[in-house]
């Protein structure tokens, strides 16, 4: 069994996610790109879980944990985005310079 295909795909998806985080200026799109990066990591976890001798099912259990953390992160992140939009009428990350000195 070969895992290289999944690793290459995961690397490509992660790179697209990084590109989205760096390029998009809408805060919701930045969060979407972060979701893509987390999912790309999950491919690696599950593929290696099937590749190596994984008696404790560590790959799949860790993929579950990553999904859980992603869900929690999305809840908090989107609440923050909605709150910022309510206060400043904009979700553009370039205009959020409140903490810039």
């Amino acid at each position: 069994m070969i895992v290289n295909q999944f690793l290459v795909l995961g690397a490509l998806l992660f790179s697209i996610g990084v590109y989205g985080v760096l390029v998009r200026r809408n805060a919701v799109l930045v969060l979407l790109s972060i979701e893509l990066m987390l999912a790309a990591v999950n491919i690696n976890l599950v593929a290696f879980g099937a590749f190596v001798d994984d008696a404790a099912a560590a790959g799949q259990v860790f993929a579950l944990f990553v999904i859980t953390v992603a869900a929690a992160e999305v809840g908090i992140g989107l609440a923050i985005v909605v709150l910022i939009f309510r206060n400043r009428s904009s979700a553009n990350v370039d205009e959020l310079d409140l903490m810039k000195w």
């Binding site: 999944f6 795909l9 979701e35 999912a39 999950n42 491919i43 599950v46 593929a47 879980g49 099937a50 790959g59 799949q60 993929a63 579950l64 999904i67 992603a70 869900a71 999305v74």
Partner: peptide
């Protein structure tokens, strides 16, 4: 689909329900 092809049936179901559904 990739999770299923790596024998991760439960992870695939969670992926569809949590990610593609709720998130």
């Amino acid at each position: 689909v990739f999770y299923v092809s790596n024998a991760g049936h439960f992870v695939a179901v969670v992926q569809v329900i949590v990610y593609a559904g709720a998130v």
